[in-house]
């Protein structure tokens, strides 16, 4: 039972969110889509953390997915599903090239290159006429047949992606990821291909981020270069840190909580940056295992009392 508690938890949150879409009116529906996409981004960030690397390029791949979708919708009339697949595919291809170069380095180097890559892409978008330059792209709507159900579609797809990542994490491949984080020389010494495995991990996470970006573009209808700066990676980090990175439930819980609080605070005229910044700082200093860790602690206390 405890083996499956994360699966159950994630599915339960997904059901709650879907109920929100069904009964909560249009504002709640929009909020749910934000939460679902934020949860995917945070899960993608966590996925690369399995090999011990902090992937600041996740915002870049989110942007690649979104821009690919925006471009296709504006310039080529392709079917919706194909658009989605191509957006994920582009993120996959770019991530294999980028990862193939940068995963030779580790830790701060890898992190800062990802950061620079995100910023370089943002500048690239502003320079490209075909991508709308500074003002970005507009008119990115889901097809008519899906429009009424788009919030359901996005939420379900996002959670399928999250469950897919969890499935990989629990597979043998996922165990090699964690082993690499623990001690990559041991993993290498028995014949596992460390570098190749790292690129695979990075490519999977980036493809998922690209798909999330595509879903975001369709949900938002409008995209601009400013949406895809490094702040986006820091936001994803905030969800992850508040939720707790040890458990796959963490990013989902963190995204749900922070997006709701931020939305409420903004309606009161609060500053989103201060809120997210404070959430990260307080979590790091006082709740290093995040909400998931806290829940675990409470459960264990209860068990030890019983």
């Amino acid at each position: 039972m405890t083996e499956y508690k994360e699966w159950i938890g994630i599915v339960a949150i997904a059901c709650a969110l879907l109920a929100g879409v069904a009964f909560g009116g249009s504002y709640i529906g929009t909020l749910v889509v934000w939460i679902a996409i934020a949860a995917v981004m945070a899960s993608s960030l966590r996925f690369v953390l399995l090999i011990g690397e902090l992937n600041f390029a996740s915002a870049a791949f989110f942007g690649i997915g979104a821009y690919c979708t925006g471009y296709i919708v504006n310039h080529a009339d392709l079917p919706f599903v194909l658009t989605l697949a191509l957006s994920g595919g582009l993120a996959l291809v770019v991530s294999i090239v980028f990862g193939g170069i940068t995963l030779k380095v580790k830790g701060p180097y890898f992190l800062l290159i990802g950061f620079a890559f995100t910023e370089a892409l943002r500048i690239f978008y502003t320079r490209m006429e075909a991508l709308g330059g500074n003002s970005g792209l507009v008119g990115i709507f889901p097809p008519a047949w899906l429009d009424a159900h788009y919030q359901y579609f996005t939420t379900v797809l996002c959670f399928l992606l999250i469950l897919g990542l969890l499935g990989i994490e629990r597979s043998h491949l996922g165990k090699i990821f964690i082993a690499i984080r623990d001690n990559e020389n041991v993993v290498r010494s028995v014949g596992n291909r460390v570098f190749f495995t790292k690129v695979v991990c990075f490519a999977i996470a980036s493809t998922v981020a690209g798909l999330a970006g595509s879903l975001h573009a369709f949900a938002n209808n409008v995209i601009s270069p400013l949406d895809f700066g490094f702040m986006l990676s820091i936001f994803a980090l905030a969800y992850l840190k508040v939720g707790g990175e040890d458990s796959p439930l963490g990013p989902v819980m963190g995204a749900a909580l922070l997006v709701c609080v931020a939305s409420y605070a903004q309606s009161l005229g609060g500053n989103e940056h201060i809120l997210y910044g404070l959430a990260i700082v307080l979590s790091v200093l006082f709740m290093p295992k995040g909400l998931a860790g806290l829940a675990d602690l409470l459960r264990r206390k209860k068990e030890s009392v019983a």
Partner: peptide, 11 residues
């Protein structure tokens, strides 16, 4: 094997 820490500590 390695002289020090030739295992995967968190697993």
């Amino acid at each position: 094997t390695f002289q020090h820490g030739s295992y995967l500590p968190s697993m």
